[in-house]
């Protein structure tokens, strides 16, 4: 099957996006930015799933993506609420301020 854009390109983009997201999660201190980076990683995975679905002509990948998006939306709701709660407590959303669990 021939496509205008080859699947490899999508996978490469997905990889780039995932690495960007992972780097963001690991390196940023702002909780909202980390959160956004997590979304980036999710979407990178979504992209890979859709790309493979197109490659193999099956709907399973697309179906997964819907679930992932739904769960991500829910996660955003919960995650933002957590961040708001943290901010109310700490007057900051810098995650390095949250190290009370230090051993």
């Amino acid at each position: 099957m021939n496509f205008a854009v080859p699947t490899e390109a999508f996978i490469m983009l997905s990889m780039v996006l995932f690495i960007l997201g992972a780097m963001g999660v690991l390196l940023r201190r702002n909780a909202i930015l980390i959160f956004m980076s997590v979304e980036l990683m999710l979407n990178a995975a979504n992209l890979a799933l859709v790309a493979f679905a197109r490659q193999w002509g099956q709907m399973n990948g697309q179906l997964f993506v819907f679930f992932v998006m739904t769960v991500a939306a829910a996660e955003v709701a919960v995650g933002l609420a957590l961040i708001v709660a943290i901010f109310r407590n700490k007057r900051s959303i810098n995650i390095d301020d949250l190290h009370q669990m230090e051993g």
Binding site: L27, H99, M101, G103
Partner: peptide
Amino acid sequence: SLRLVQTGYVRVYAVALL
């Protein structure tokens, strides 16, 4: 010695996870 592992910084856990 084990307790040193538990830094309490989310980043560290994230790296470990990764």
